[in-house]
Amino acid sequence: MNIDDLKNTWNDDVSAATPEISIEQTNKINLPLEKIRKNMRMEFWSTVGILLFGFAVVWIPVPEAPFKFKFYLTVLLFSMVIVISFFFSKFFKLYNNISNPMMKTFDSLKDLMYQFDLNKQYYLSFMLSFVPFLVCEMIIVIEFIPRPIPLSETKIAVILISSLAIGLFGLFLLGKYWYRVFYGKYVQQIENLLVELKKK
């Protein structure tokens, strides 16, 4: 068998292994992808708005708020910006990949599903990464908010431990729910198409 025959045989095998996606199936893919892109944009700008609102609230001129209180909250917010920037850089790569989709083969669709699965893990990690910030915020509030009767050490420990436990559990559930509502159902539509292609 000469080289040309070998190339033709190889190309035939690859074509058989990676069936083409029809125009109708491409349209089915584009609809959920557009919904995902729209939700990603909404989430990005909402996060930017919340952070700007947070900085504005911290530095509203309140005479009784000590400088240390404002400074610690500002450092906390800047730390959140760094963490959020890391995760959004990952999400932005996915956004770029699905903004100009070249969904022509079964393999490209499988690769897209792998990216969605990876970003789901990033998403849950993103939500859970806010737990330390929640605990730090509780510490700052406990330390700086004046009270008629100071909290005992036991109460402080209970507040912090319960904040950690509730925060972990609550943010994990919120992350799963949020992902399912804004992304999961659209990813499922693409996965159903992948299963449909497998049967062919």
Rank of each mutant, 00 (worst) to 15 (best):
T47H: 07
V48F: 09
V48R: 13
V48S: 03
V48C: 14
G49I: 08
G49T: 14
G49P: 03
I50S: 10
I50W: 11
I50G: 01
I50V: 15
L51K: 11
L51W: 13
L51F: 14
L51Y: 10
L51E: 01
L52N: 14
L52R: 13
F53V: 06
G54A: 12
G54N: 14
F55C: 09
F55P: 14
F55T: 04
F55G: 08
F55Y: 15
F55I: 07
F55H: 12
A56H: 05
A56F: 06
A56S: 15
W59I: 09
I60M: 11
I60S: 07
I60Q: 06
I60W: 06
I60K: 02
P61M: 12
P61L: 13
P63M: 09
P63Y: 08
P63G: 12
P63L: 13
E64V: 15
E64C: 05
E64I: 15
E64P: 07
A65L: 14
P66T: 00
P66L: 05
F67S: 13
F67D: 09
F67C: 09
F67N: 02
F67Q: 09
F67K: 13
K68Q: 12
K68H: 09
F69D: 01
F69L: 11
F69Q: 04
F69W: 13
F69V: 00
F69C: 04
K70L: 06
K70W: 02
K70R: 15
K70Q: 14
K70T: 06
K70A: 07
F71D: 13
F71V: 10
Y72A: 10
Y72T: 03
Y72P: 00
L73W: 00
L73F: 10
L73V: 02
T74F: 07
V75G: 00
V75L: 11
V75F: 06
V75E: 03
V75T: 08
L76Q: 05
L76G: 01
L76S: 03
L76Y: 01
L76D: 02
L76M: 13
L77D: 00
L77F: 15
L77A: 09
L77S: 05
S79T: 05
M80W: 08
M80P: 00
M80K: 06
V81Q: 01
V81S: 08
V81T: 08
I82N: 07
I82P: 01
I82T: 10
V83S: 02
I84E: 07
I84D: 07
S85D: 06
F86K: 11
F86P: 03
F86D: 08
F86T: 04
F87D: 07
F87W: 05
F87G: 04
F88S: 01
F88C: 01
S89Q: 10
S89I: 09
K90R: 15
F91P: 00
F91K: 12
F91V: 08
